[in-house]
Nucleic acid binder design. Structure first.
Lengths: 352, 352
DNA sequence: CTGAAAGCGCTTACAG
DNA sequence: CTGAAAGCGCTTACAG
């Protein structure tokens, strides 16, 4: 258990204070609070007036303890500063709130060690369930060690390394990474491109592997060559992408288009192209992934895949709430749809 | 109080289970958990082994109830999807976690009504204190009605409309908006500009008013004219900013530079300028505010004011924790520093 | 060094 | 319709 840094709190108004003042029992006040029809109308009115007068605040923790219920959902994210996850969190919080729960937040900064610590701390607060977007190299054993097999858990966005214990009934919500990258690649092929690179991301990230697989799938289906030197890895940031641009132009023949790992990489590649005097959307076609806010207003606007993270947040919360209703149902695996947004960056090849 | 949507939870291992198995009392197990030196070493070892064996999870809610303490901090944000607040939240969560607390999250979507509902729901979970970035038109009365005067509260980023009750000891953490805008304006003046616009934002937002005041201050100090038609209002988004660009060029003389309300507006203005054939950073100078991730990598890179929102989050959490230690100390008002980041967009005027 | 007892603020059968 | 009593899982003086 964690260390003790709690602090005493001011004396609060309790049911006893209200009951005494109204000359009824605590039980009656409780029934009023919970809207029971058993209570006499006039008694109810008196009690409600007194609750208001004294500024009573319901102590949900005490009620949860007595009823052995929970009114919170934990949300554990690898990277809240990423707008994709921030939108996701906003969607989770909205749905969780609508269901009468409160969100417990935890950030792991992509560290499996922090993830384990955060989970261990959150679980002591008794959440009804957990939504987890795992840190990059997090493993099923660690999560299982921190949570046990009983805790309802929904995994978002990334698979967990290691073996998923079947008895744990963990649910999954993934983006359709492979299909998204396939759609983007097919679109470029339809525009007339034949030499198409896959740019950015790291091979050890599962989402990157899936997107690359979608690219490969589309290229092979079209009978197009997959040149190893057209697979350029980089960190999923604009800056690193810009600096890796040269790798695409090292040896002829040079590609005429690139399917990028995500929007940040795509925008970085645009920058790198401009710096080489190549104009994206005219001399070179680009697609992204995520449809972040900048995609629609970049120069040129970016063809990309929309994942509507806020919607995904709502969906994740609803899947978890569903699990709370049916704890024993078998694991559910959901694939969120992605939608191709065609914009100016995916021009035809200059020679076509 | 809110409606009841809680759900029963599986039977958990308690202190009693451990005590029975070790043939000691609950009290002894509790002492072991809390690291008391009173317990015999061998007893401690036996108990710890049993805790591990049964997968015991500490019930912090029960402990908090008994000890009348709290182990959570509520964080209520007007807009989590905004990267500025997402970074802020990440900073808050890190500092809150380091102090042994957990973060309760609430989003208000800029709606004072939702803000009141969210506060009312969160307070039932007994947070030790609250960090609130108020919704745009939220008022002190509403917050007071939801929280009472006792709850430790730190207001971030925006003042609250209405009168702040002095007895409430609410703390404030604000950005130095006025100084930031003054620095930006002074920088443009030093570059040689004389006709400088203030572009974007709405007059009813307090941060916008403060930034505008900084602009006015610098202009007046330099003896430069403040043309009413060089004050263009727009929503703080890229798209609206781009579409309002024409307003700057409606009548001669035309400005040669613009201090923008924030980075989103500045990037939108860049876009609008490109569309008119005016090249930002060469034909027209621009400054932003916030130093969002895109600012450093836009074309041209954007001169702006860095507010380091993650640092602000840590600072906010620490101010609140400080208040928890000294509940009766008088209200504290902190102004976070801002730093001018000079980049390519703030060129000298073309005629200079 | 350890245990018995009381109590945090609530809810819930069970009597009446 | 209302009250007395027990109990959720923990902690904390107080005895011994």
């Amino acid at each position: 258990m964690a260390t003790d840094n709690t602090h005493p709190v001011h004396r609060k108004i309790t049911l006893n204070d209200i009951a005494r003042e109204c000359a009824v029992s605590r039980a009656t006040v409780s029934l009023v609070l919970r809207g029971s029809p058993l209570v006499n109308t006039r008694t109810r009115a008196r009690v409600e007036e007194e609750l208001r007068r004294q500024g009573y605040v319901y102590n949900r923790a005490a009620a949860n303890l007595r009823r052995r219920t929970s009114s919170s959902i934990a949300l554990v994210l690898n990277d809240l500063a990423n707008p994709f996850f921030a939108e996701f969190a906003a969607g989770v919080d909205a749905a969780v709130g609508d269901a009468g729960f409160v969100t417990l937040l935890g950030c792991t900064s992509e560290s499996p060690a922090r993830e384990q610590a955060v989970l261990g701390s959150l679980i002591e607060h008794g959440p009804a369930g957990i939504i987890l977007s795992p840190a990059e190299h997090s493993g099923a054993e660690h999560v299982l060690a921190a949570l046990g097999a009983r805790m309802p858990l929904l995994l978002f966005n990334r698979e967990l390394g290691g073996d998923l214990p079947e008895y744990a009934h963990w649910d999954l919500l993934m983006l359709d990474n492979q299909r998204g990258a396939r759609l983007a690649t097919e679109h470029l092929i339809a525009q007339g491109h034949r030499r198409i690179a896959f740019f950015g991301g790291h091979g050890d990230s599962s989402s990157c592997r899936q997107r690359h697989a979608g690219y490969v799938e589309a290229m092979q289906a079209a009978g197009l060559p997959i040149e190893p030197r057209w697979r350029v890895e980089c960190a999923p940031t604009r800056l690193d992408a810009a600096s890796r641009t040269a790798a695409l132009f090292a040896t002829a023949p040079v590609p005429t288009a690139a399917v990028c790992y995500n929007d940040a990489v795509a925008l970085g590649l645009m920058l790198g192209l401009y710096q080489r005097g190549v104009q994206p959307g005219r001399d070179f076609a680009i697609t992204g992934f995520d449809d972040i806010a900048e995609a629609a207003v970049s120069m040129p606007s970016l063809t990309t895949l929309s994942t509507t993270p806020r919607e995904r947040g709502r969906q994740a919360a609803e899947l978890l709430l569903q699990r709370l209703r049916e704890p024993a149902a078998s694991s559910h695996r959901s694939i969120a749809p992605v939608k191709l947004m065609v914009r100016d960056s995916s021009c035809p090849p200059p020679t076509a």
